[in-house]
Amino acid sequence: MDSNGISDLYASIFSGTSGLIVLAFYILVVIGLWKVFTKAGYPGILALVPFVNVIFLVKIAGMSGWLALLYLIPIVGFIFGIFVAIRMGERFGKGGLFSFFLLFVFPYIGYLILGFGESRYRQV
């Protein structure tokens, strides 16, 4: 595939309906994260900045914000994402199954449940 074909592929992926769907999911995650950050005592506006929100998710999970750099390492980032989701669920009183499926696999649903639900943030 030549470079023009690749740019056409990217243009078709990130335009039209698929671009709107990605934007809708991003907005859902930001709304949920805003409420989660507020419950945890952080300013909700931090949810709008893409890498900053990951740093504060790691902090809410009870770890150092510097560990968010582990997301940049391919396989380690995937495993660390699962670990952060489970630790974050524990902080809000949720079990491992909820944390894995609704905070790691389907975060646009899980963060809305944590943010708008009755669960409370507990600092351990």
Rank of each mutant, 00 (worst) to 15 (best):
S3P: 05
S3N: 14
G5Q: 12
G5C: 10
G5W: 09
I6P: 11
I6L: 15
S7A: 13
S7N: 11
D8R: 11
L9I: 15
Y10L: 15
A11S: 15
S12E: 08
S12A: 12
S15N: 11
S18L: 14
S18E: 03
L20M: 13
V22D: 00
L23H: 03
A24C: 05
Y26P: 01
I27K: 05
I27W: 06
V29S: 06
V30S: 04
G32W: 03
G32M: 07
L33H: 02
L33W: 09
W34Y: 14
V36L: 08
V36D: 02
F37S: 03
T38A: 09
A40Q: 03
A40T: 05
A40S: 14
G41L: 07
G41C: 04
Y42R: 04
P43T: 03
G44L: 09
L46T: 01
A47F: 04
L48N: 08
L48W: 11
V49E: 06
P50Y: 11
F51L: 15
N53V: 00
I55V: 15
I55Q: 06
F56S: 00
L57T: 14
L57N: 09
V58Q: 04
V58R: 04
I60H: 00
I60Q: 02
A61H: 01
A61I: 02
G62W: 11
G62H: 13
G62A: 13
M63L: 12
S64K: 10
G65A: 08
G65W: 11
W66R: 02
L67R: 06
A68I: 04
L69W: 09
L69Q: 08
Y71Q: 10
Y71L: 10
L72T: 10
L72M: 12
I73W: 04
I75T: 02
V76N: 02
G77V: 06
F78L: 12
F78G: 04
F78V: 12
F80K: 04
G81I: 01
G81L: 00
I82A: 09
F83Q: 02
A85Q: 05
E90S: 12
R91A: 15
F92C: 08
F92K: 10
F92G: 07
G93I: 09
G93E: 07
K94I: 01
G96Q: 03
L97V: 14
L97W: 12
S99I: 02
S99C: 02
S99P: 09
F101S: 03
F101Q: 01
F101P: 00
L102G: 03
L102N: 07
L103K: 06
F104I: 05
V105F: 07
F106E: 00
I109K: 00
G110E: 01
L112E: 09
L112D: 12
I113Y: 10
I113L: 13
L114G: 07
L114M: 08
L114N: 05
F116R: 09
G117T: 13
E118F: 01
S119D: 15
S119Y: 13
R120G: 08
Y121F: 15
R122N: 15
Q123K: 13
